[in-house]
């Protein structure tokens, strides 16, 4: 069916590709920051660790890290499924399972970040 004015293509391929790259910049940058903290001035005990982890900016950084990592993972996994899983029922089932798993990880991370609030 030809709908007047409708474009034959959507922008979703490009937007996903761009998001994948933008999220990776933050995820990689934050991972380097955490590695440097752990190498240069590692928290000496649990209290020090909690103090560092619970401070406002670090917690915000972790929250952003988790959200962007989940977006990055979702786009990447979906891309793999688009390549290899062709029957619609199979792709849909695997996508639902993946989304459930990623959301569960997100909620778990949120629970941890809320619990360490000072």
């Amino acid at each position: 069916m030809n709908i007047p004015g409708a474009r034959s293509s959507s922008q979703s391929g490009f937007i996903e590709w761009l998001l994948q790259r933008l999220t990776s910049v933050y995820v990689a940058g934050f991972a380097v920051y955490v590695a440097i903290v752990l190498l240069v001035c590692p928290p000496v005990d649990f209290e020090a660790w909690r103090g560092w982890f619970g401070s406002g900016f670090v917690r915000l950084g972790w929250a952003l890290f988790v959200v962007l990592l989940l977006i990055h993972a979702w786009i990447g996994m979906r891309s793999v499924f688009m390549d290899y899983l062709h029957p619609l029922w199979l792709r849909l089932s695997v996508l639902v399972l993946t989304a459930t798993g990623l959301l569960a990880l997100g909620f778990w991370a949120a629970a941890i970040l809320l619990r360490v609030a000072p």
């Binding site: 959507s10 922008q11 391929g13 996903e16 688009m82």
Partner: peptide, 14 residues
């Protein structure tokens, strides 16, 4: 460019 923005035509290239 608009014709290449969907998830398949161009962006299946890895």
């Amino acid at each position: 460019l608009a014709d290449l923005e969907d998830p398949y035509r161009l962006f299946r290239c890895h």
